[in-house]
């Protein structure tokens, strides 16, 4: 398996560190552990863990040190898309990077 970093090109897997599901969302900072513990439990522990397309975070530590959002099929390890996490975040918030 190789990942095509948008900044460095196609690189071997050993250059990257995996950081799990890219779709989990940290609850807002003022979410109370007393009144909404479930939101924190969901965020810290629960995962969809799909067999199929998975959106996930990788860190290119041996290259450009960018955080990347990779779309990959967990059944075949086929990589469909690699984007800079900053670009994905900017798109989600509707503003510029």
């Amino acid at each position: 398996m190789r990942l095509t970093c948008p900044f460095c090109g196609s690189r071997g897997l050993e250059e990257f560190t995996y950081r799990g599901d890219a779709l989990v969302r940290r609850p807002a900072a003022d979410t109370s552990l007393q009144t909404d513990a479930q939101a924190w439990t969901d965020y810290v522990y629960l995962r969809d863990n799909p067999a199929g397309l998975h959106s996930e975070l990788w860190y290119h530590g041996v290259g450009c040190r960018s955080w990347l959002v990779v779309t990959r099929d967990t059944r075949t390890h086929r990589v469909d898309d690699v984007r800079a996490a900053s670009a994905v975040a900017a798109e989600r918030s509707g503003g510029a990077a």
Partner: peptide
Amino acid sequence: DGYNSYAQRGNLPVIE
């Protein structure tokens, strides 16, 4: 290997 997988096969860096 360290990443989500249902493939029942891994990659070379871990073999190394």
